[in-house]
Design a protein around this nucleic acid. Structure first.
Lengths: 125, 125
DNA sequence: TCGACATTTCTAGTATTATCGAATAATTGA
DNA sequence: TCAATTATTCGATAATACTAGAAATGTCGA
């Protein structure tokens, strides 16, 4: 159910996201999907000095929100969607105690964001 | 659709959540639901000095994640579920570009957390 | 093996945030 | 109006996090 996140892990994930540059990076990578982006591409898009960006990427990665893989000379970063989903789950734990009017909008967000329901979970790429 | 959150607002929400004590407070209030809890109750439950807690409550409130109302001598804090849902939406914006396998688990989280689908959205209290 | 490239690590200077006791403010009952 | 209750604001100190240039690391093509 991908919801085995400790409070400590959630805390470092939130701390990692709580920075303008890192939040930009993360959202850029959410949009990029599983393919991810090279550090250099991100630095260029964000007009951020390489050493600063590297510091931020390391923080996001240490928090478990990003994964890193090497491809030639480049290091490709991508979102760890498992961790991302687990973080959402952690924040929503025991939400609203059965009073549906509180967080019904979440269902819609999930429908919209998850762009999927279960119509076609097999299409790769 | 409750998803008009600016990057700046999202940033301060995340920064507000990125602290052990504040995350505890927030989750406690998520569980408490719309009724909320008095500052004193929270301080007692978390074993946190009143002045420190007040600092943290102010931060969460300034970020828009909590609402405050007076009830006699007590100040009652409760989660602003609108803002909470908007934050989720912000983070999920343009998630996964149609590749359903990425964030399908979100649908389930929403189903579980939202404890509702649309079975019974009229039940008060 | 060398030079160019992509990125990280090191370093130290700077800025931001947290902590909590003491003082202050708002509310109530007598 | 006064004392008790509930909670916030102030202020000084401590702790943590950010920034970005320079140096180091890993990779590749010739």
């Amino acid at each position: 159910m991908s919801n085995n996140m400790t409070p400590t892990a959630a805390l470092s994930s939130l701390a990692a996201l709580a920075h303008e540059c890192r939040l930009d990076v993360f959202r850029m990578l959410v949009k990029a999907g599983t393919e991810g982006l090279a550090a250099g591409q991100i630095a260029a898009a964000l007009d951020c000095p390489a050493s600063s960006l590297s510091f931020h990427l390391a923080q996001l990665t240490r928090a478990g929100l990003l994964e890193q893989k090497r491809e030639g000379r480049s290091l490709i970063y991508s979102v760890s969607f498992d961790q991302f989903v687990a973080l959402m789950g952690f924040l929503l734990e025991d939400c609203c105690q059965g009073r549906s009017e509180i967080c019904a909008p979440l269902a819609e967000i999930a429908r919209t964001a998850a762009c999927c329901s279960e119509t076609d979970a097999g299409s790769q790429q």
